[in-house]
Simulated assay, not measured.
Amino acid sequence: MKTFLWKMLPALALLLLFSSCDISNDDASFHFVTVPVQAVDMPESFTLNETYTIGVTLLIPNGCTSFEGFDVTSEGETIRRVIGIGTERDNIACTEAIEVVDSSFEFLCLYSGTYLFKFWTGQNEAGEPQFLEIEVPVTP
Score class of each variant (00 low, 15 high):
residue 120 W to E: 08
residue 123 Q to D: 14
residue 85 I to E: 03
residue 110 L to D: 05
residue 100 V to L: 10
residue 65 T to S: 11
residue 91 N to L: 12
residue 68 E to F: 08
residue 87 T to V: 15
residue 122 G to E: 11
residue 103 S to C: 02
residue 59 L to N: 13
residue 124 N to R: 03
residue 70 F to I: 04
residue 67 F to P: 10
residue 110 L to R: 11
residue 124 N to S: 09
residue 113 G to Y: 03
residue 84 G to Q: 10
residue 118 K to E: 15
residue 75 E to L: 15
residue 80 R to C: 11
residue 121 T to R: 02
residue 80 R to Q: 12
residue 82 V to G: 02
residue 83 I to T: 09
residue 114 T to P: 07
residue 79 I to C: 11
residue 109 C to H: 01
residue 77 E to H: 13
residue 113 G to C: 05
residue 76 G to F: 04
residue 60 I to Y: 00
residue 61 P to I: 03
residue 119 F to K: 00
residue 79 I to H: 01
residue 81 R to P: 09
residue 117 F to Q: 00
residue 78 T to C: 09
residue 91 N to C: 07
residue 109 C to A: 09
residue 104 S to F: 06
residue 110 L to A: 11
residue 93 A to S: 12
residue 104 S to W: 05
residue 104 S to Y: 01
residue 84 G to L: 10
residue 112 S to L: 07
residue 76 G to E: 09
residue 109 C to E: 07
residue 122 G to S: 10
residue 76 G to Q: 03
residue 84 G to V: 02
residue 68 E to R: 11
residue 92 I to F: 01
residue 69 G to W: 04
residue 95 T to A: 03
residue 116 L to R: 05
residue 100 V to I: 15
residue 108 L to S: 10
residue 81 R to V: 15
residue 100 V to C: 05
residue 74 S to I: 06
residue 80 R to V: 12
residue 87 T to Y: 12
residue 92 I to S: 06
residue 97 A to N: 09
residue 98 I to M: 11
residue 81 R to T: 15
residue 123 Q to R: 15
residue 78 T to M: 08
residue 84 G to D: 01
residue 111 Y to E: 12
residue 73 T to L: 15
residue 121 T to L: 02
residue 123 Q to F: 15
residue 115 Y to E: 04
residue 116 L to W: 06
residue 122 G to A: 06
residue 114 T to S: 09
residue 96 E to C: 00
residue 82 V to C: 05
residue 87 T to D: 14
residue 62 N to Y: 02
residue 88 E to T: 06
residue 74 S to Y: 05
residue 106 E to V: 02
residue 96 E to R: 05
residue 106 E to G: 02
residue 111 Y to G: 05
residue 66 S to V: 14
residue 80 R to G: 10
residue 115 Y to T: 05
residue 94 C to Q: 01
residue 70 F to W: 09
residue 65 T to V: 15
residue 66 S to D: 15
residue 122 G to F: 02
residue 94 C to S: 00
residue 66 S to R: 14
residue 78 T to L: 11
residue 120 W to V: 04
residue 83 I to M: 10
residue 107 F to W: 01
residue 104 S to R: 08
